[in-house]
């Protein structure tokens, strides 16, 4: 009887999540009257604005990942190695993006870095892109920091550092050749999550008026019938692809660390 209820709850849960997706996918395939077709997908993928906004967001996602890795890996490493008492505070700071709405942050940016401020970043496209990457890095911080910190927990950071130091290595060599390769799988997990967040982000890109994928999805959704559904399916596929890659690299790490 217990098993019946467990299966029942699972099936209801799955239906709750899957039915809307099936409905949306079904709708996205009905652009041509009376038959199923990929017309909506072809239209979306053929739209130059889709290509521009998607490639813009991919570029910014990669930059965000780079900045995140450069910021988070040395920070998490240093906190574990030399400042373990600061860990709770650092964790608190990295959690702030989850409780402070993006709109608050972006208004803060606009106020601080507008054209009449001491650092007028919003005055140029490049400056605004820099602001956007900074904002995305902050949004991804809770995921990136946790992923890297969990990766660092699996290795003996102190002893590996001391072993490398006794062999003549400096800090740069230690981080790039010992620490980073050993937390690479964790960094990749954080990177895929960052990618998924940046691709779908709307608020910051819209308020900073940058041609990103999120605002494009919103504009398309407001003006078209079938294309937004196709676009949503594409966005889902990208996110799930990222999650699948996380699973894949996690499995790779497990098999690499298997004892003989």
């Amino acid at each position: 009887m217990k098993r019946f209820w467990a299966w029942g709850a699972l099936i209801i849960g799955l239906l709750y999540f899957i039915l809307p997706l099936i409905g949306m996918t079904n709708f996205s395939l009905k652009m041509r009257r009376g038959v199923y077709s990929f017309d909506a997908y072809a239209k979306v993928l053929g739209d130059t604005r889709f290509q521009e906004t998607f490639s813009y967001s991919v570029t910014l996602a990669l930059l965000t990942i780079l900045v995140g890795v450069f910021l988070v890996v040395p920070t998490a490493y240093w906190v574990r190695l030399k400042l373990p008492f600061l860990r709770p505070y650092i964790e608190f700071v990295t959690l702030l993006p989850l409780v402070i709405p993006a709109i608050v942050v972006v208004f803060g940016y606009i106020r601080l870095y507008n054209t009449s401020s001491w650092l007028p970043l919003t005055g140029t496209a490049l400056g605004t892109d820099v602001l956007l990457v900074a904002g995305y890095t902050m949004l991804a911080l809770p995921y990136m920091y946790r992923a890297v910190d969990t990766g660092l927990r699996t290795i003996d950071v102190t002893t590996l550092t001391e072993a490398a130091q006794s062999l003549g290595a400096g800090w740069f060599t230690i981080i790039t050749r010992i620490i980073l390769p050993n937390v690479l799988v964790a960094v990749l997990s954080g990177a895929f999550l960052t990618f998924a967040i940046v691709i779908g982000e709307f608020t910051m890109a819209a308020l900073l008026n940058r041609p990103a994928f999120g605002p494009y999805m919103q504009v398309l959704g407001a003006n078209r019938a079938y294309e937004p559904a196709a676009l949503a399916v594409i966005a889902f596929a990208i996110t799930w692809g990222c999650l699948g890659l996380i699973q894949l690299v996690s499995r790779f790490q497990k098999s690499a660390q298997r004892p003989v």
């Binding site: 290795i155 003996d156 002893t159 590996l160 001391e162 072993a163 490398a164 006794s166 062999l167 003549g168 010992i178 390769p181 050993n182 690479l184 660390q257």
Partner: peptide, 15 residues
């Protein structure tokens, strides 16, 4: 310092 050290926990680089 050019001093070699061997640790209790081996400390080989796993990668």
């Amino acid at each position: 310092r050019n001093i070699g050290m061997v640790f209790q926990a081996y400390a080989l680089f796993p990668n």
